[in-house]
Amino acid sequence: MTPRRLRVAPGSPFQLLLLACSFALAAYAGIRLLAGDWFAVALWIVGAALLHDLVLVPLYAAADRAVIHGLAAAGQRAWTPYVRVPAALSALLLLVWFPLISGRSAERYRLATGLSPDGFLTRWLLIAAVLFGGSAALLALRVRRAAKQRPPAPH
């Protein structure tokens, strides 16, 4: 442990100057960004950081840990990537395209673009099915190969 400082250290002058310039520009743009509904915009920016760091990260970290521990309890720790990869990729697609997949903006989408908003959920489910299916097939192949390489049990 470093001994508690009695006075506040200023830090590198270069870093101070750089950050001062950065804040000046951020403030210049920020005043304009907050010109409308300033509270809601500030809430969105701070909320985005907090939601990500304090909700999203713990949530997917916990889900990942549950998968690892679940498979370890079943004695199949090596199967982890075969669950993790398709789950992560499917979740990523859902996160990015959530408004279309969930149909949140379906009516506006149909009216504005003249396209059907109905296919997104189906296509996402199909992609997830292909990812999980492909992963399962790879795992099955691996398990079979491992079984073949094992010497036959003596009778």
Binding site: A40, W44, Y109, T113
Partner: peptide, 11 residues
């Protein structure tokens, strides 16, 4: 959100 026409942002 904008490209998905989900205009929930504040402004």
């Amino acid at each position: 959100l904008n490209i998905q026409l989900d205009y929930v942002f504040p402004g």
